[in-house]
C-alpha cells in the first residue's frame, strides 16, 4: 500500500496537510513588507535574498483574522515560479497516510474551503484537510483600473 507523507499545520482550529514534497521549509514569523491592494497576500519576505510572497491562509479561507498577539508561522512551498509562503497558526507533525483513509470533499463544506481543498484524510483523532498547493497560492491583487480612474475623477485624487 502506497504511503504518502503530509506536513500538517493548524489554521483557525482546523488541521490541514500538504504533501511533504511540496514543502521547502518551515520558518518562524518573519518581518513582512505589506503589499498594497491585497488582503490574502499579506506581505513580502526576504528569504535569504529571495523575495517571496506570503499568503495568509486565514484570509484565503475567509476565516476570522488571527489575534494580533499570535505570530503566524511560514510554511514555504516550492512552486514553478519560485517559493511562496503560507501563513499558518501552528505547525504540527508529519503524518503518514494511505489511500484507504481518503475521502472526497464533503459537499457541505464552505466554498472558500472547497476551492483549495482536494479531499480529507481520516486520522485517528482528527480530520486532515488536504490542501491543493497550486490552487492555494493562486491569488492576485485587488485593484481595478477602471474604478480607480472614475473614483479619482469624481472625488478628486485626495480621497
Amino acid at each position: 500500500m502506497a504511503m504518502r507523507q503530509f506536513c500538517t499545520f493548524r489554521v483557525g482550529g482546523e488541521l490541514f496537510g500538504i504533501g511533504v514534497e511540496r514543502v521547502q521549509e518551515v520558518i518562524n514569523y518573519q518581518q513582512m513588507t505589506p503589499i498594497p491592494f491585497s488582503s490574502a497576500l499579506r506581505g513580502l519576505i526576504n528569504l535569504r535574498g529571495q523575495i517571496i510572497v506570503a499568503i495568509d491562509l486565514r484570509t484565503r479561507l475567509q476565516m476570522e483574522e488571527r489575534p494580533a498577539d499570535q505570530a503566524p508561522m511560514n510554511v514555504v512551498l516550492r512552486s514553478e515560479e519560485g517559493a511562496v509562503s503560507l501563513l499558518v497558526d501552528e505547525i504540527c507533525d508529519v503524518v503518514n497516510v494511505t489511500e484507504q483513509t481518503f475521502e472526497a470533499v464533503p459537499v457541505t463544506m464552505r466554498a472558500a474551503f472547497k476551492e483549495i481543498i482536494s479531499g480529507v484524510h481520516k486520522l485517528d483523532k482528527d480530520l486532515m484537510l488536504v490542501l491543493d498547493a497550486q490552487r492555494a497560492i493562486d491569488v492576485g491583487v485587488e485593484m481595478s483600473e477602471v474604478n480607480s480612474v472614475e473614483h479619482a475623477v469624481s472625488h478628486g485624487v485626495s480621497n
Binding site: 498594497p36 491585497s38 491583487v141 485593484m143 483600473e145
Partner: peptide, 27 residues
C-alpha cells in the same frame, strides 16, 4: 531590482521589489 511574484503581476503601481541594506524588502 527583483521582479514581483506572479501573484503580484496585477499590481500596476509597483514595478518590482528590492532588498535594503538592513535586509528588509521595499517595493
Amino acid at each position: 531590482v527583483k521582479p514581483l511574484a506572479r501573484q503580484l503581476k496585477g499590481l500596476t503601481v509597483c514595478s518590482g521589489a528590492t532588498i535594503m541594506g538592513d535586509g528588509a524588502v521595499a517595493m
